[in-house]
Design a binder for these strands. Structure first.
Lengths: 155, 155
DNA sequence: GTTTATTTGTTATATTGTAACATCTGGTAT
DNA sequence: ATACCAGATGTTACAATATAACAAATAAAC
């Protein structure tokens, strides 16, 4: 369970940060993209593309898969969200400006995901890839299990 | 590019190990499952489910998606293969008996995958999850980039 | 204001994965 | 031997995820 006292704050912060970055980079933060990002930030659990599509269709009756995937691409490219590959789902990024080296703790029970950006893991990975003479472009680290709250609950 | 002088040896070793484990655990290593494992070990690049289906249908005209996915489930459950989540593809495991803590180096260029089972990474992950009071069930670490051979080639 | 590039709409389809039930096969108990 | 049972495979149908290709709308740049 994520420690956010006020999830409204998570959302508004994420929206503001995205807005600022879009202004800086002269990207178009359209209504569609805003809606998508807000929907993804609905909680700390990842959202699935077709779930987002359903929600989108409430407002925008003509939304189609391509509508959703194009917005997702935009949000991914600019670091506003992550794709959780082990779940085929999408989750908001809480620090889009330094988006690298983000690792995920995925609770199988409450479904919430928290980012853990740990420099020790990063340097361990760097050491290993260097030893293997491997040139890294992208790292996916997804750790599934139970968060503290949920593992207490099930005891 | 993987350093295997003789890929026939990779295949035969993998088949023998699987056979031994199946005997020990009283699992049925059927012709279908053997064919599937051999096809996955066709090389060090990951194989996609529907690609395997096509190959399987050459021998077994009646093969269907379920045929393939059920075999894949068997091979996954018993540690003979890994699912590469970032690619939705499957690759043979070269040490099924100690199957945990396997990390992957995925070359975007030659597509080959090598396992890098590094205890430093494992302990860095353990330290981080402990600090976050997170109880790990399963870890996915997939590192994409270029292997040494390919990065030399493109220079 | 016209051109240009980007975004969105729209249709169609490709790819990946499961559910549910029928049939077969090989071992076990009688 | 044979009746039974469990696990494996066959079969049909479909669900879920994702992309391609082209048209229309919109915003930016000239």
């Amino acid at each position: 369970m994520i420690q956010c006292e006020d999830h409204g704050l998570c959302i508004s912060t994420a929206m503001e940060v995205a807005d600022r970055i879009c202004t800086e980079k002269r990207l178009k933060f359209t209504d569609l993209r805003k809606d998508m990002l807000r929907m993804i930030w609905d909680g700390h659990a990842p959202q699935k593309a077709y779930g987002l599509l359903s929600k989108l269709q409430v407002k925008n009756h003509s939304a189609k898969p391509a509508t959703v995937y194009r917005s997702l691409d935009f949000l991914l490219e600019n670091g506003f969200i992550h794709k959780v590959k082990s779940l085929n789902a999408f989750v908001g990024c809480s620090h889009p400006s330094k988006h690298d080296e983000c690792y995920f703790l995925i609770c199988d029970s409450c479904k919430e995901i928290s980012e853990c950006c740990d420099s020790n893991i990063t340097s361990a990975i760097k050491a290993t890839t260097k030893r293997n003479q491997f040139f890294v472009k992208n790292t996916t680290l997804e750790i599934a299990g139970h968060c503290n709250a949920c593992s207490k609950r099930t005891e």
